[in-house]
């Protein structure tokens, strides 16, 4: 099975990112919908909540991939070879065609709300300014090696964060945390990056009363940031009983999601193997990354429910 045209995908994503600030077509304002009614604002704490828009983007990434697969199935996959041109000419307008599942939009927005609510309940003070907090981190550009586009995007991000006087940013997903860290080297971003899981207090967590779950560690959290212990500490504090899968902690098995933009077929077959492994130990698996959550869910393994850690910790199981 052949994946999508590599050059076309890299050019499309780079071009669209530079034009709209996001790597796939999405309507204006989509990234900040989650915060409506929460009363979050700028408070001058020097610490900014930075969602990186990755959770919010998942339904749009899924819709975009479904659209490319439909094009391939109709024998029109060749248009993707002209990804750069496509993005320049009609890229932003594609959001009218690549429509996301409204239920997925609601669910992923809710994950972000849960993460923010957990921070508030933990007594963490932070600023939230939608036009900066919900900017994209540039994670896909970083992973695809689109360095020139990443530099341009990274400089925009640096200027936005500097204009806010942000000294620290709180991230809610591993890829945004990793990309912001890379941007410190690449464009001189001078902010401390703090994954929100580090800031949560046990008293802020719901009580799941001994419900059993398994854990799908994120590769970045487990292998680069050494956060596996912290994740388990929080889940236990929230009253969850953990059954470890065969590959866990620093030996976690990747969900396959990072190759999704280039080969949805390969991503799904890797996800299926991992999801079956998780299902063999529990009917509920806790993930902590939007890419993992989406990719493992797409494998549709019977008897396995995937939840985000923010849902697990706030009792929405």
């Amino acid at each position: 099975m052949r994946g999508l045209d590599i050059r076309g995908v890299v050019e499309f994503i780079s071009e669209l990112e530079l034009r709209t600030g996001y790597p796939v077509p999405a309507p204006r304002g989509f990234a900040s919908q989650w915060s409506r009614g929460l009363g979050l604002e700028r408070r001058g704490t020097g610490r900014l909540l930075f969602t990186g828009a990755l959770y919010q983007l998942v339904p749009y990434i899924e819709a975009f991939i479904a659209m490319t697969l439909r094009l391939e199935a109709a024998g029109k996959g060749w248009v993707l070879r002209y990804g750069g041109l496509l993005a320049k000419s009609i890229g932003p307008a594609l959001s009218a065609i690549a429509r996301p599942d409204p239920e997925a939009v609601r669910r992923y927005n809710n994950v972000v709300r849960s993460a923010a609510s957990l921070l508030i309940r933990s007594g963490v003070e932070f600023d939230y300014v939608p036009e900066v907090s919900d900017m994209y981190s540039g994670a896909l550009l970083y992973d695809l090696g689109a360095l020139e586009a990443l530099k341009v995007h990274g400089n925009r991000l640096r200027e936005a964060l500097e204009s806010m006087g942000a000294m620290e940013v709180i991230t809610i997903d591993p890829h945004s945390a990793e990309t912001l860290t890379a941007l410190r080297d690449l464009v001189g971003l001078k902010v401390e990056v703090i994954p929100y899981l580090e800031l949560l207090k046990p008293s802020a967590l719901a009580d799941a009363k001994g419900l059993e779950v398994t854990v799908h560690d994120s590769c970045i959290y487990a292998r680069r940031l050494g956060l596996s212990g912290r994740v388990r500490e929080l889940l236990r504090a929230a009253g969850l009983r953990i059954r470890e899968p065969p590959r866990s902690g620093a030996s976690t098995g990747c969900c396959g999601g990072p190759v999704e933009a280039l080969s949805p077929g390969m991503a799904t077959s890797i996800a299926r193997a991992r999801a079956e492994e998780l299902a063999s130990v529990s009917g509920t698996a806790v993930a902590m990354c939007p890419i993992c959550l989406a990719n493992l869910s797409r494998a549709r393994v019977k008897g396995l429910r995937l939840v985000d850690i923010s849902e697990a910790l706030s009792g929405s199981l």
Binding site: R2, E148, S263
Partner: peptide
């Protein structure tokens, strides 16, 4: 990408 060495028509299999 910086060398412009990616030809069209290449894909992961």
């Amino acid at each position: 990408t910086s060398r412009g060495a990616l030809d069209k028509g290449l894909a992961v299999r």
